[in-house]
Each structure stands twice: as C-alpha cells, then as structure tokens.
Simulated scan of single mutants.
Amino acid sequence: MPELPEVETTRRGIEPHVAGRTLTAVTVREPRLRWPVDARVAELRDKRIVGLRRRAKYLLMDLGDLNLGIHLGMSGTLRVVPAETPLRKHDHIDLHLDSGRLLRFNDPRRFGALLYLTDALTHPLLANLGPEPLDQDFSGGWLYRRSRGRRVSVKSFIMDNATVVGVGNIYAQESLFLAGIHPSRPAGRISEARYQRLALAIRSVLAKAIEAGGTTLRDFTSADGQPGYFAQQLLVYGRAGEPCPQCAEPLRGGRHGQRSTVYCPRCQR
C-alpha cells in the first residue's frame, strides 16, 4: 500500500501539471471503487484547479468551491498522460485538462477512492485525523500527552491516524529502531524524553523517504514512471535474521498487530 511518502511523491510529481489548469470534463468508466463515485463528479465542467495538496494519504484537488479527494488505496496510481494515450486495464477515471492531457486514475484492486467533497476538513474521513508528522503541531510532547494511560503498544499507537497521520508499517518500524524503542512497549509507559526522540525519528525517516521519492513497493511507481529508491536505505524493515546495523545482533521478526515487525532485541527497549 502506498504510504505517506509515496502519496507526497505523487502529489509533487503531478501538481506542476494540474495546478492552474482548468478541469474541462471527467470520464468515469468504473464508479465502483472503495466507495461509489458520486454522480456529480462526472458532471464537473470548466473548473479551475487552484492547487493539489495532501492530507494524510488523501490528495485534495482544490476546485474553489469544492475538492476532489483522491485515495490510492492498495494499488492505485495517477499518471498525467496525453489525451490520445490508449487505455490500460483498470484505467477507471480520467480528469480532462485544458492542456490536452489527462490525469488518469488506475486501480486494479479498486480499494482507492475519488470523493466529491463540499467541505473537505469536516468530512468524516478527514475530520478526526491527527497532526501531519512534518508540521509544527506534531512533537514528542504531543505523543507523550496523548499516550498517558494507554496500554496499546507504541507501534500501534503511532500507526493510529488519530495520533499522527501517515506512519505506516514500514516507517513505524524504522522510526522505532532509530529511537531505540521496542515496538511492543506500552505507549503509556514511555517517557517524554523518549517520545521526543521518537518524534524526531519519525520526521527524519519520512523526510528522507519523501526526498528519495518514496519506498519501492510492488504496486507503486511515481508520477514520472520511476520507482522510489528509499527501500535501499531501510535499516530494519524486511531484514529479519540479518545483523543489526548498530550492534550486529540478529534482527528479530514476527507478527505484531497482524503486521510484520522487525526490531533489534538489544538496541530497542
């Protein structure tokens, strides 16, 4: 599944081609996505695209009086292509631009979404999200205060979008390793000082992933057709049994909250 860096990479790749353009029409070939595509989407005409921003894993296309919310789901991709580009299997939606190009949404598994949002920030899917991990509102103090009395594991805690958005399985493991925190430690039993280190680690890991173009995942390629390269820099994810890059102890792997987890039993406490 594309995580926050992949979605941000997609936004940065696409925005120069859509911001300031006019959305002239929308072709919906398959409305049966994760949620049915609102019939009003196909009726959109002559809408200026003010900009394209990201909230958590949602891309929000600002059309002035409304937003189109795009979620890539498990396998969705967006490409900017010439209007005459032949259709591929699973090309479900085309957003027609006045440049003569299309913003084409492809989603083999149909777990993605295209949402018609009259007020994006109050929509139930967006209203209760936590802070962005790279914004000033996110800090170790925020994590510490929110974690008090919580028995849930710290890994599950930071993967909760109500705590902070966009810290998926890959980046949770990497951040906890850098902060020296065991993934199964109860969130409410971690000091503020350690949460300060964790917040810094989350910022660092995500910023590097965005800069590198997103992690290479089987179902993701960036807007220009090139895969991301951050996977080459991962310290623990997918490396169970290999030596820890800090102490050489074999990294341990297992299931944690039904998700794979790799950690160092010596460096993470």
Rank of each mutant, 00 (worst) to 15 (best):
F177T: 13
R185E: 13
C247Y: 03
R203N: 09
G257K: 01
E249M: 09
A207N: 03
A19P: 08
V205F: 03
R79S: 08
F230Y: 13
R203M: 06
G141F: 06
P265R: 08
P131A: 08
V18L: 07
V236G: 04
V81E: 14
P31D: 04
R189V: 12
L125E: 13
A212S: 11
P82M: 10
R29H: 07
L178P: 00
T77H: 00
A172Y: 07
L206V: 09
D224P: 01
K208Q: 15
E15F: 01
S147V: 07
A201Y: 06
L63N: 06
R48D: 12
L235I: 10
E3W: 01
L200T: 14
L206H: 00
R197F: 09
V262S: 06
R48S: 15
E211Y: 00
Q226C: 05
L78P: 01
R48F: 13
G253R: 10
F105V: 10
C267P: 02
I49D: 12
G149N: 08
D135P: 00
E174S: 03
S153Y: 05
E8G: 01
L126T: 06
D224M: 03
Y229L: 14
R53E: 15
R194D: 15
T22E: 11
L72A: 04
G228D: 05
T163L: 06
D119P: 02
G73R: 02
A172L: 09
A120E: 12
R259L: 13
Q233W: 12
Y171Q: 05
Y263C: 07
R189N: 15
V50Y: 13
R21T: 15
R145E: 15
L33T: 02
P5C: 06
V28M: 03
N169T: 10
G180M: 13
G168T: 06
P183F: 12
A39N: 04
P245V: 08
T77R: 08
G228H: 03
A42N: 06
R239N: 09
S191E: 15
G100D: 10
V152F: 03
Y58V: 13
V80N: 04
L97H: 07
A172V: 08
G73K: 02
R54Q: 09
N161G: 08
R146Q: 15
G130W: 02
G180W: 12
C267W: 02
P31C: 05
K57Q: 02
R109D: 05
R259P: 09
V81N: 04
P265N: 07
